[in-house]
Design a protein around this nucleic acid. Structure first.
Length: 291
DNA sequence: AACCTGTTCAACCGCACACTG
DNA sequence: ACAGTGTGCGGTTGAACAGGT
């Protein structure tokens, strides 16, 4: 046996059967010993990993649920990359699985950010303080009652109360719209996150099929741009309150044939019949100024 | 159908720590 | 105290797969 080359790569069914047999007989310790006596041409470390991540009883091989995702995001925020520790809070899940899942989530988040910066970046590469991007974190997740389709999301839950974006009236308006969309549209069962920059606003949600969906619009309306400019100046000067800002903007936002209505209609149309992979979020709608 | 590209996830690797003699 | 061995953990890799062209 000595000097015989150890196998690497994916495990075969036969190897799995062998490993299960010997772990049942000898226990899930002494992995080098198990590897030697079982005849599996793998190192002990590899046997241990295969057992822990795939073969051991009570492993949950199903998709990670919304509830589990919330826990993962919350604990990751709390503990950082302590995958094993996070996994202990989720019975049947492995550190490897959580690590992969989290990395995918974070990468998506980063890509969305890069795309937005590319679309809307200032010349100096910085975002205006009034329209700075809101981090997409677990705080922005709120359960929606599946039977009633209603959401209990609040501004505080979205993290408005403690950040500079509290003063961004477009974001307040956008939030109102999101709430309305969720209440009005039973297809959305989970609030997601949204981002707001100087020239675009995007929103992520999860529909009843557990698919991620998202959409955005670009602020191409000249009136809105002017409003933004005025409010930014007023806010900097400390002469504009959030309430007044919202009032000024709401007329434009809600006006007949306005962007809000266009976007909702567009999104509704495109969301119907959508069955896409969760890992491939789709762009639901893009509204530009009507001619 | 073939190719390309992006994503997922199982597995590997290196390091640190614990245990044992 | 020390060396050898076992185990746990987090970062990284690459095969397999899916979707697009």
């Amino acid at each position: 046996m000595q000097g015989e080359k150890l196998r690497k790569g994916l495990w075969h069914e036969e190897e799995d059967k062998q490993l299960i047999t010997f772990v049942t007989l000898l226990g899930d310790r002494k992995w080098d010993y198990i590897a030697r006596v079982s005849g599996i041409k793998r190192c002990g470390k590899s046997c241990r990993l295969r057992w822990l991540n795939y073969l051991r009883p009570n492993i949950n091989h199903g998709d990670i649920s919304i509830e589990e995702e919330q826990i993962i995001l919350r604990l990751h925020e709390q503990w950082g990359n302590k995958w094993a520790r996070i996994a202990r809070s989720l019975p049947g899940r492995t550190d490897n699985e959580i690590k992969n899942y989290c990395r995918t989530l974070l990468r998506r988040k980063m890509q969305a950010r890069e795309q937005e910066n590319f679309q809307c970046g200032r010349e100096d590469g910085k975002q205006d303080f009034l329209f700075q991007k809101v981090e997409f974190d677990v705080q922005t997740y709120e359960s929606v009652d599946d039977t009633s389709g209603t959401s209990n999301t609040s501004l505080d839950a979205l993290g408005f109360s403690s950040s500079a974006v509290t003063n961004s009236p477009y974001e307040v308006q956008f939030f109102d719209w999101v709430t309305e969309l969720s209440n009005d549209q039973s297809k959305i069962r989970h609030q997601g996150g949204y981002n707001c920059t100087e020239s675009s606003i995007s929103y992520t949600a999860r529909n009843s099929d557990d698919n991620d969906v998202w959409g955005w619009f670009e602020v191409l309306n000249e009136e809105m741009k002017e409003d933004i400019g005025v409010i930014k100046d007023q806010t900097r000067a400390g002469t504009q309150s959030k309430t007044n800002s919202s009032k000024v903007l709401s007329e434009n936002w809600n006006r007949e044939g306005g962007l809000k209505k266009q976007w909702i209609n567009n999104s509704k149309k495109q969301m119907e019949g959508t069955h896409l992979s969760r890992s491939r979020p789709i762009k639901l709608g893009k509204v530009t100024k009507q001619g």
